[in-house]
Design a protein around this nucleic acid. Structure first.
Lengths: 338, 338
DNA sequence: CTGTTAGCGCGTTCAT
DNA sequence: ATGAACGCGCTAACAG
């Protein structure tokens, strides 16, 4: 069913049919109605490849993730995609997730993907302090939003959670419980979120007059094994910290294991907090104190922002900071050193 | 940089250039070398939209997932995608994940996606006993492989883990530990994997001469809250089961919570086994006995199978059954009723 | 071996 | 308000 066949069956030219279907003004109401009726009766749909060649649009957007070994971020990933897809589906746009492997050929892989022109816009996740992917997207003129800020890139559209505020609040909460030696198990320092969470951590310590060098910060990969490994080292320190703040729940659950193995009790001997409010943390023993950041909502905001960018809005002005919510649970208790 | 410009600069026709670049035999070695040199010198790349209109191919495949509320399956999802993408990237194909929301408009959404012709082939995950999506793909003539078998659909290409064998082995193992009252917390019975796992469960009971009606089976959603809820009911049964087999790790971790809340010890008072070998299970207390099914390897096999289907092989003959590996850990111990 | 021609199916000026 | 004609950039059938 081509537009040609449809036009023939109506005794019209293809151009009239095309304009009637695409909402042009210079077509009589009567003709438009006739065309639309015939189109839906014959179930006409423009050939997508031809449509794309003519318009340059694909009708799809990509959510870019960096692919590497298993880490805990994926648990929340589905919720993010759901939020994005929900908004974009209403605009008849498809949402597709594409994993670009991290490593030396990351940029060339991304270039290859952009050149393939499979999508009209991009949502970039897991931003880094200086992110060459952002620079590439800007150079190519591809509409995009990032999930998470960057620090040294030219201004662009982004949606982020208030990492600084969240970790300042969490740290202050631990201080209010009497903790003075608090450790931070953080993500790698090239990740933007890690830098910001540490800022919040240090601000809270500073306000409370606690010396930074009594509160160790460790940078590590985001998985349980790393959490366990770092926690082991923290336990052998003298004096050891009475509370541990983790960049994500997965790290905290790994830390649980080392604490228990040492014969200590989580929540009384040592307090632990995570971030992300995963179900694994909720069902852990004891339930893990964490921070919830409404991830599906973030997805919806990302989609709305991307639509604005694709519509021609100035990306530099499109920035959204979301407040996470602190969830105190049994893993975070009073300091026993008081 | 169009093929026209490239041809002009060489004093050749566009068709000769096209054939030289696309590896046709009827072009002189000398001409081909000249064309290739000029193409890479001028960094020529065919316009993707035009290329697609002419060939009908997109250079991408989609991995289809069903989108619904948070469940534990996603944790392993990244590993699957990595395996798929690794193989397809070597063929210069892009791998994109697309979530189709489950519900009444699932089929019409899938139809819309197929009509958009964004991909050349599809990997369909989470198959159901009778799967209308499979029927649709067959009707449309879209090359595809499923991850998991179906039971009432026409023959098609699939890769699956040996669910029957895995759960028969796991159940037998529990029986060998002295358990006689074993419960199964299963997925919903419209899911193919759930039916097959139950088959393995029942075969083992049958071989051991244990009456099925002493071993309850519960069907539920695949998340921790459901596991906790079902476990609560199991604990109030008289007599209560001494071992619980769960369709996935996430259910098992939910069950942990209810068992602990009842003041019982996992692994001694009640044995628990999961499936999937997730990190959350590995780091749980006690470590969760589970089954590992080499998910990245499954991804590679799915990709290889899809390539064969796209190459014209008979889908009905492309079936692969993978053996999972039983991982006994502290959560599964001897029955105390012995 | 190479060039000429046609067509893929649209959207979009430019006449009328 | 409508139709004719052209262009998007490429591949493929045909001719020589």
């Amino acid at each position: 069913m081509s537009i040609q066949a449809l036009a023939d069956s109506l005794g019209l030219s293809t151009s009239t049919v095309s304009r009637a279907l695409n909402g042009y003004a210079d077509v009589s109401a009567k003709t438009r109605a006739r065309v639309e009726a015939a189109a839906s009766a014959m179930n006409y749909q423009p050939h997508p490849m031809a449509h794309r060649l003519a318009t340059g649009k694909t009708g799809a957007i990509a959510l870019l993730t960096s692919m590497r070994g298993g880490n805990y971020l994926e648990a929340s990933f589905t919720a993010l995609v759901s939020g994005v897809a929900e908004v974009l589906r209403a605009q008849k746009l498809f949402t597709m997730s594409v994993g670009i492997p991290t490593g030396d050929d990351e940029i060339s892989e991304l270039e290859r993907f952009l050149s393939a022109r499979l999508v009209d816009g991009i949502i970039l996740t897991r931003t880094r302090t200086h992110d060459p992917r952002v620079a590439l997207l800007q150079a190519r003129g591809m509409p995009f939003v990032t999930y998470g800020r960057t620090m040294d890139n030219a201004p662009h559209a982004w949606v982020d959670t208030d990492n600084v505020g969240a970790f300042e609040q969490a740290t202050s909460q631990l201080i209010a419980l009497g903790h003075r030696r608090i450790a931070l198990i953080n993500g790698m320092p090239n990740m933007a979120f890690a830098v910001l969470r540490q800022q919040g951590f240090e601000q809270a310590l500073h306000k409370a007059g606690i010396a930074l060098d009594t509160c160790p910060v460790h940078y590590t990969e985001l998985n349980g094994a790393s959490g366990a490994h770092v926690m082991e080292r923290l336990l052998s320190a003298v004096p050891r910290p009475s509370a541990v703040l983790c960049a994500i729940d997965g790290l905290a659950l790994g830390a649980y294991q080392s604490i228990k193995k040492a014969g200590l009790l989580v929540g009384s001997d040592i307090s632990v907090m995570g971030y992300g409010n995963t179900e694994a943390g909720e069902f852990a023993d004891p339930p893990l104190a964490s921070m919830d950041h409404a991830i599906a909502e973030n997805g919806r905001h990302l989609a709305q922002t991307l639509l604005q960018v694709m519509g021609g809005a100035d990306p530099a002005s499109l920035n959204l900071l979301e407040k996470p919510k602190l969830l105190m649970r049994a893993s975070a208790g009073k300091s026993i050193s008081n």
